[in-house]
């Protein structure tokens, strides 16, 4: 650890390299769950909001943040949970949405369903279930290429 403390921008940069444990193609900052980074005296305070209240990834995410920041030499660290305003998929970055689509997960749309099949881009898709492999996803299917795919639910 160098004598002076790293800038807030640097910390954000470090956090943008921490992948989401469930969907590793996007980072925690892409997901929009890091709400604030601030120095409170000598302590770095990182404010995190959960995606879904029962998401089992939440504890892993906190552990990953801690591990990453300790790896960069941060000694005094405090993680704060913030519930309100509640997380919304509007906070996903554009870059994050593009990465999701490339990975085969249809990004959230205000209309409430995927724009098109993330694989063949056909607009002929149908819903299998509002719930999927993780709390944040639903199951859809393309009626052209017939592939089932995950859709990132809009909340």
């Amino acid at each position: 650890m160098v004598g002076e403390r790293p800038s807030i921008e640097t910390v954000w940069e470090w956090l943008s390299a921490v992948p989401d444990p469930e969907i590793p193609v996007i980072s925690l900052t892409d997901l929009g769950i890091i709400r604030d980074v601030a120095w409170q005296g000598d302590t770095l305070e990182v404010t995190v909001t959960p995606t879904y209240s029962g998401c089992p990834a939440t504890t892993i995410i906190n552990l990953d943040i801690e591990t990453a920041l300790r790896g960069h030499g941060i000694e005094n660290l405090s993680l704060k949970r913030q519930l309100s305003p509640a997380w919304t998929t509007d906070w996903l970055t554009e870059e994050g949405k593009a990465k999701l689509e490339e990975y085969g997960i249809a990004p959230p749309q205000p209309a409430g369903g995927p724009k098109h099949c993330p694989l063949c881009k056909s607009e002929n898709v149908e819903r299998i279930s509002q719930f999927g492999s993780t709390p944040c996803k639903a199951q859809w299917r393309c009626t052209d290429c017939l592939e089932p795919f995950d859709y990132f639910k809009c909340i």
Binding site: P50, Y52, S53, G54, C55, P56, L83, I128, S129, Q130, F131, G132, S133, P135, Q139
Partner: peptide
């Protein structure tokens, strides 16, 4: 399977809310 997953997700949400 889809119902199994949906029920498990619902249960998970409810248990998450319980913690709060």
């Amino acid at each position: 399977l889809e119902e199994d997953i949906a029920l498990a997700n619902t249960a998970l949400d409810l248990i998450g809310q319980t913690q709060l």
